[in-house]
């Protein structure tokens, strides 16, 4: 039995990747696409050989079991609530929310409707991260003392530079993946955040540079660079790195350092061509299996998404107050 899935909004570029994952997965049927931009819905429906629905309501009225939501960040909340009310299971793009109240409303809507809400945190599915977790849990570096992470990228532009729709800039865009990995790795919540931001890359009314310092429940401290600081000539989109410092040693993960270096004369560029596992595929595959009744393993819940987004939200509060602030549960 194939799991019938719809995609709500292609505003976030990750929707394209998830659509490819659904098309490639023998257990999935991409039933249709709805988007507040109806021209985009039609173009994407043609591209992915599926149906364009003329409204979110009509998509949700179809016999789909689940939706993947890839709208602008601030629009996650109404779409999650609509999908939950229609009894659909949900995989929502990160960050789950831009405001704590939105997040609470989303969690409550899913719970009230008895649907499962998940957050798109594909990095959890990285074999390099999972091996790092096994090593640390097996005591390879002794007691964990500190973490150092990066999730740098380049400015996606468009609505990502509109703080109303995006909920912020680089810090809102790129904090949650690695904050989630830190929570996943340690099993502890991030309880305090200090952050510095800047806008010297693009000189806009949004942060393009962001550096967070976090304290976990168990006293481990961590920093995370979530800047859009990769130059235009950088050989790939960015990075996800995480280093763990322990009493007996250090583990350093560079999640996407599985690539060929391609000197492309035709493009006048040097590129990194990734050949590692396709983590979006692994994540979407688990989502499909969980919707079909299997037990959740690595898939991030709505609560995980909430906790990670709350770190970015606390980061903005810290920037305002110029001091460390507690992360709201």
């Amino acid at each position: 039995m194939k799991v019938k899935v719809g995609i709500m909004s292609f505003a976030h570029l990750h929707a394209d990747s998830y659509a490819h994952c659904l098309k490639a997965n023998p257990n999935a049927e991409l039933v249709g696409i709805a988007d507040h931009d109806s021209a985009r819905a039609q173009a994407k429906a043609r591209e992915f050989e599926t149906q364009a629905f003329d409204s979110y309501e009509s998509l949700l009225a179809s016999d789909i079991q689940a939706v993947i939501i890839c709208s602008e960040n601030a629009r996650h909340a109404p779409l999650v609530q609509m999908a939950a009310a229609s009894g659909k299971h949900i995989l929502c793009e990160k960050p789950l929310m831009t405001k704590l109240d939105d997040g609470k409303a989303m969690l409550a809507a899913a719970q009230g409707a008895g649907v499962q809400l998940f957050t798109a945190f594909p990095c959890r599915f990285s074999p390099a991260f999972q091996q790092m977790m096994r090593l640390i849990h097996a005591g390879a570096i002794g007691e964990l003392l500190a973490l150092r992470g990066t999730n740098r990228g380049s400015n996606p532009g468009g609505w990502f530079n509109d703080p109303e729709l995006a909920g912020g800039g680089a810090m809102m865009d790129h904090t949650v993946h690695v904050a989630d990995l830190m929570r996943r790795l340690t099993g502890h919540e991030i309880v305090e955040v200090y952050a510095e931001t800047g806008n010297n890359m693009f000189h806009g009314a949004f942060d393009d540079t962001a550096m967070l310092t976090m304290t976990l429940q168990n006293g481990v401290f961590a920093t995370l660079d979530s800047s859009w600081s990769r130059p235009k000539t950088f050989p790939t989109w960015g990075d996800v790195t995480l280093a763990a410092i322990g009493t007996r040693g250090v583990v350093e993960m560079d999640m996407f350092a599985q690539y060929l270096v391609y000197y492309d004369d035709r493009a006048g560029r040097v590129k990194q061509l990734f050949w590692g596992d396709h983590i979006d595929y692994l994540m979407v595959d688990e989502f499909l299996r969980v919707v079909a009744g299997a037990e959740r393993q690595a898939l991030a819940t709505g609560e995980d998404g909430y906790r990670a987004a709350a770190v970015a939200i606390a980061g903005y509060e810290s920037v305002k107050r110029r001091e460390p602030v507690p992360v709201q549960a």
Partner: peptide, 29 residues
């Protein structure tokens, strides 16, 4: 901690730049 020291420092510069410095006496590598 005996013979272990590590730091992560964040700096905000007057010119608006943000800096990060890692210092470690924890890395056997």
């Amino acid at each position: 901690l005996t013979h272990l020291d590590y730091t992560l420092v964040t700096l905000k510069f007057k010119n608006g730049a943000v800096g990060h410095v890692e210092g470690t006496w924890c890395d056997p590598g």
